[in-house]
Simulated scan of single mutants.
Amino acid sequence: MSSVRSFNDFGQLEEIVIGSAEHFHIPDADASLRHFFGLPEDHTGDQVTEADLARIIDETQEDLQALADTLTSFGVTVRRPAPAVHGSPLTVADWTTTANHSLMPRDCLLVVGENIIEAPMPVRARYTETFPFRGLLSEYFASGANWLAAPRPRLADATYAYEGDTPVLAEIEPLFDAANLLRAGSDLFFNVSNTGNRTGAAWLRRVLGSEFTVHEISICDDHVGTTLHILRPGVLLANAGRLTPETIPAPLRNWKIIWFDEPEDDGYGLTWPRASTWIGMNILSVNEETVIVPARQTELARQLEKEGFTAVPVPYRHGRTFGGGFHCCSLDVRRQGSLESYV
């Protein structure tokens, strides 16, 4: 049996990949980065000393190790990417940038059943982000997994369009970050946004075939992990600052919803934050009863405990600094359970 097999984000977790902040590099604010983060034209980049950046990276590595140790205590196999030095020049077609990090496998890789898919990411600095994970991908392929990659995008300037002041992706080629997807068995919810276009949804729909239904939704500007989570069949965790009962995806509206509206602000260590305070609800489920939450998010833990979940606090200091929480910085490659329809 393939060592890759996961249809949702809530089945009993057996194996997971956790990213690394080692050698994190701040790329230039090119057209794609400005588009993704909504940066103003006069943005000149981060002003941070080497010592401060080194401290932030070390603290993040400590927190990721704490996450790995916690998961190991639950019997989960934890895998890590190969060491990589980021920041070397990267030139494709008519643009040049520098590689960014290998911190967030959830963004660059999508697991659907026994398929592991390299996503066609729209930010140029993330063009080679799957490379530090290639050793694991080769291993998973040898075990029987289907290793797929979306068409490698050109990412021309025309990709980065605007509707008024709202950044949107042109429909020139398939584009999406894997973190745009909410997985619910045979139903996948694809967030059409600044990090995923309808052409990307169409490509994924055709590749996965008739076993899966890819629903197009639009519930936030980019990734869904700070807006909506499926905790178990019939139960959602929802961002009360962005969603209402009417904007929950239609197939899920009759589910029980835990509304969360009081995230703690962890602050950020660079000149500007890569994520809002809602990164505090970027949680990771071990199973249908156990959820790992950032240690400072005590109100979130309280709400989950009130609803019968076990909330496991783990420190994570730099979610806003790097723009990713526990869900972003991990990729579950094997969970118990088979292909089911939950909606």
Rank of each mutant, 00 (worst) to 15 (best):
Asp42Ser: 14
Arg274Cys: 14
Thr199Phe: 05
Phe131Leu: 14
Gly38Thr: 07
Lys306Ser: 13
Gly319His: 05
Glu50Ser: 14
Phe322Ile: 04
Val333Glu: 03
Phe36Asp: 14
Ala82Ile: 00
Met121Trp: 02
Phe326His: 00
Gly75Lys: 01
Ile18Val: 13
Gly164Cys: 12
Gly11Val: 03
Thr298Asn: 11
Glu14Tyr: 00
Ala311Ser: 15
Pro315Met: 04
Arg55Thr: 15
Gln297Met: 13
Phe24Cys: 00
Ile57Tyr: 00
Val85Pro: 04
Leu175Glu: 00
Ser276Tyr: 08
Leu252Lys: 05
Glu305Ala: 14
Leu109Gly: 08
Ala142Trp: 10
Asn146Gly: 09
Asp177Asn: 12
Ala51Trp: 07
Ala84Ile: 03
Arg317Asn: 13
Ile57Gln: 07
Arg198Val: 12
Thr227Lys: 06
Val312Glu: 09
Glu173Lys: 00
Asp265Arg: 06
Ala184Phe: 09
Phe37Ser: 11
Asp107Cys: 02
Leu231Trp: 04
Glu15Ile: 02
Arg183Thr: 11
Asp165Met: 12
Thr166Ile: 13
Ser3Met: 10
Glu15Ala: 15
His43Gly: 06
Leu284Asn: 00
Glu139Tyr: 08
Glu163Lys: 14
His35Cys: 07
Asn197Trp: 02
His327Asp: 03
Ala99Tyr: 01
Gly196Met: 02
Ile257Phe: 00
Phe322Gly: 06
Glu22His: 12
Arg317Leu: 13
Tyr268Glu: 05
Leu252Cys: 02
Arg80Leu: 09
Ile292Asp: 05
Arg302Leu: 09
Ser143Leu: 04
Leu300Asp: 08
Leu204Val: 10
Val111Tyr: 04
Pro167Ser: 10
Asp221Ile: 03
Val92Trp: 12
Val92Asp: 12
Glu288Gln: 15
Pro167Tyr: 12
Pro27Tyr: 01
Gly319Trp: 02
Asn239Ile: 08
Arg79Cys: 12
His327Gly: 01
Gly269Phe: 07
Pro315Arg: 11
Gly45Ala: 11
Glu22Asp: 15
Leu110His: 07
Glu50Pro: 07
Val4Ala: 06
Ala119Tyr: 06
Ala275Gly: 08
Thr130Met: 13
Thr49Ala: 09
Val312Leu: 04
Asp187Arg: 14
Val286Leu: 10
Glu50Phe: 12
Leu204Ala: 10
Gly225Tyr: 15
Asp94Met: 06
Leu33Ile: 06
Ala68Ile: 09
Pro120Gln: 03
Tyr342Cys: 05
Gly209Met: 04
Leu243Val: 05
Val4Ser: 13
Phe189Asn: 07
Arg198Gln: 13
Ala145Lys: 10
Gly324Gln: 06
Leu228Cys: 06
Asp30Thr: 00
Ala275Phe: 08
Val92Pro: 05
Arg124Asn: 09
Gly144Asn: 08
Thr77Tyr: 01
Arg79Trp: 10
Thr166Trp: 08
Ile16Cys: 11
Ser2Phe: 02
Ala82Lys: 11
Glu307Val: 02
Val224Leu: 13
Ala250Met: 12
Arg302Ala: 15
Asp157Ile: 13
Asp28Ile: 11
